[in-house]
Simulated assay, not measured.
Amino acid sequence: MSVLIGVDFTSAPRAAKPITVAHGRLAGEEIHLDRLAALPDWPSFDALLNTPGPWLGAFDFPFGLPREGLTALGWPHPDWATLVRHVATLSKTDFRAALDADRLRRPMGARYPHRATDATAHSHSPMKLVNPPVGLMFFEGAPRLLAAGCRLPGLHDGDPMRIAVEAYPGLLARRITRASYKSDTRRKQSPERLAARQHIVAELIAGTALAGLRLTLTPEQRTSLIADARGDWLDAVLALAQAARCARHGAPQFGMPAHADPLEGWIATA
């Protein structure tokens, strides 16, 4: 599947902080960045999910919740779709209250259960509501994937022409550099972070980040990725690279590990 989408997600899209999307193609060893797009609201994101395939998209939000947390919450979870349908019946207030109550029941230092894939990728628990609010990202994102009828390998059999996998741009960025490369806070948007973005982009172009897959882009696109101090455009492109890696693995697993949990989900390239 050569048409690719990389998505840097937010649980509250707006003009000042949109969902950012990298559209591209996989041709041999090259990931071609065709264009970047900003989605300022949910209708534009829903329209993206319902774009006719074939395409493979990597989305930067958790697709699942940890089994341990679901058992404690008492939510139905015989399978992924049943869980997500239940979550879709909850208001955001009720969802937050349930996760807050679970957190407060747990001892300090162990207040957030993790998925197996989080341990591998060193990612945040999807039951966190702040810094970052990945729980709210699951709340907003997963029901939309289900409603759109996308196929999630290992989790849900939907349209085989619209494949969605979970991305984590930070995982790929850390394989290139441990240096911080972005910040939403203006006073932290330093020359050092600018240099880190330059390094990440250079490694993506060189093909050293993902087993020989090389990013191809225009000078203008390169400038945009490096100049964006918040890192939203670069994160979308990192997700695009993770989508390319999954496309390289191909159907039906798209790189899903053999031990992946069919409820919790899995992070691409972890």
Rank of each mutant, 00 (worst) to 15 (best):
P169Q: 14
A15H: 14
H77D: 02
T223P: 00
P113E: 02
L146C: 13
K128C: 05
P40T: 06
G24K: 11
P62E: 06
P52S: 07
S123E: 06
T185C: 01
L240P: 02
P191M: 11
H77A: 12
S11E: 15
R178L: 02
T89R: 09
G74H: 10
D232H: 00
E192T: 07
S190F: 01
E166A: 14
I31E: 01
S183R: 00
V165L: 14
L238T: 03
R25M: 13
Q189R: 14
E203V: 15
E30P: 08
R105N: 14
Y181R: 01
D94C: 00
A101R: 13
R35S: 14
R175E: 03
N50L: 05
A241S: 10
M161Q: 15
T82Y: 05
D34M: 11
E68C: 03
D60E: 08
P257G: 01
A98I: 02
A88Y: 02
A241V: 08
T120I: 15
L48N: 08
L99I: 04
A72K: 06
L204E: 09
F61D: 04
T117Y: 00
P160A: 15
A251Q: 14
A88F: 04
L152Q: 05
L36F: 06
P43S: 10
T82D: 03
F45Q: 00
R222Q: 15
K17S: 13
P191E: 11
S180R: 14
G158P: 13
F59V: 12
V165Q: 03
H86R: 09
E68H: 02
L39R: 02
A38C: 12
F254T: 08
I205T: 12
A116D: 08
V201I: 09
M161W: 07
A179F: 06
W75G: 00
H114F: 13
T71Q: 12
A12D: 12
L136N: 11
M137S: 08
G255H: 03
G141Q: 09
L213P: 03
P13T: 10
A195Y: 04
D100V: 14
T120M: 13
P18E: 05
I19C: 04
E192V: 13
A98E: 06
F254P: 05
A202P: 04
A148F: 09
Y112I: 00
P66H: 15
A243W: 07
